[in-house]
Design a binder for these strands. Structure first.
Lengths: 191, 191
DNA sequence: GGCATAACGCAACTCGACTTGCGATGATGG
DNA sequence: CCATCATCGCAAGTCGAGTTGCGTTATGCC
């Protein structure tokens, strides 16, 4: 199904085919179980081409996850800053507990030898995510729930940091109550 | 130098020898560059014995790092809760930026297939660290800087979470000012 | 339409993590 | 002091990640 056109593909076509195949393989066999030989075969592409483009398995997995989950988290707009933050970061917490979410963050902190492509990809990804969530803070400022000169990144970090630590490092669950409490504390502290 | 006694070692002796050798190898070649074949040879132990005891490379590396860095972070006692928290978590931030610290957290969030030994080790380690840092919160309560019913884990997470996220995920540096700001916000929010 | 070049296919590697079966030896309990 | 059994040494092997050299083909540019 995945490998149509018997004619050889080039450039962006290969890229998309491999990325899709990688996402499918990850969903099927898990992040750890996905072999690049399988991915290449599923994409109808030779293994060597994968290595030439992505270099390492970690790079491919990371890009595949980023590619698929780029629009995963919706930005709520309920009229209440506290509710917006609680809803958004509760969704994030659920996502982090997911194998895919866990793997995304884990992949983001994986091999420390690349320092080139990997680091750049990582930073760009998180910068983009942060910029996207920034509207939540901006709306909070408009409503007067947050001062105009508040550091938007700090607000998001105060929520995302503890959640991520609790879920990924300590392996505990994070429910809506915990997130609501965090949002309450953050808003109270910054006002 | 490391492999004394030509007589074969057993049990705990082997364990300590391998752990020491692993720590040396990591310091010499980095976390990614340390090969278990080298470690086994350095410890004067056969490669198979390492696998029988630790199973995977990740387990060995994690335990070696934990073993070495168990008493790395001192607990300050300056008389000021704000200062105590700032000092402690500034040290933590510096440590996280270190290759060893980075690797510890990265190793803590590595392969997700073990679910047995690995997960248990991870939880126990972080639980112990948390319990150790809890005195900072307790002293804060004694001074009246924090309410008696405050959630100690929450306080520590509010500091450690953002720091870890900023350093490890986004690859940015965290200075004393940032930590002091976080401590200020946390104390103000919880009072 | 022809041509240079970058991208791909292919095969044959290296290398290190991890496994397995078996024999030898060390640390116990009687 | 001796038997037992877990632990270790050893050899041989599996498996997947990553590399290399060379032939082939698609694609953009003139």
């Amino acid at each position: 199904m995945t490998s149509r056109t018997p004619k050889a593909r080039r450039g962006e076509t290969v890229r998309r085919a491999v990325l899709t195949a990688a996402a499918e393989a990850i969903e099927a066999d898990g992040v750890a179980g996905a072999r690049i030989a399988d991915i290449a075969a599923r994409a109808g592409v030779h293994e060597t081409s994968v290595y030439r483009r992505w270099g390492t398995r970690a790079n491919l997995v990371l890009e595949a996850l980023m590619d698929r989950l780029d629009t995963a988290l919706p930005l709520p707009d309920t009229g209440s800053t506290h509710e917006d933050l609680t809803a958004f970061f509760t969704t994030l917490a659920s996502f982090l507990a997911t194998p895919a979410g866990e793997s995304l963050v884990r992949a983001s902190t994986a091999t420390s030898d690349d320092r080139d492509q990997f680091d750049r990809m990582r930073r760009e990804f998180w910068a983009a995510r942060l910029a996207r969530a920034k509207v939540l803070v901006d709306r909070g400022i408009d409503r007067g729930d947050l001062p105009a000169d508040v550091d938007a990144e700090l607000v998001l970090e105060m929520l995302a940091g503890p959640i991520q630590l609790r879920v990924l490092l300590r392996g505990e669950r994070v429910g809506r109550e915990y997130v609501a409490h965090l949002a309450d504390l953050a808003l109270r502290a910054l006002r």
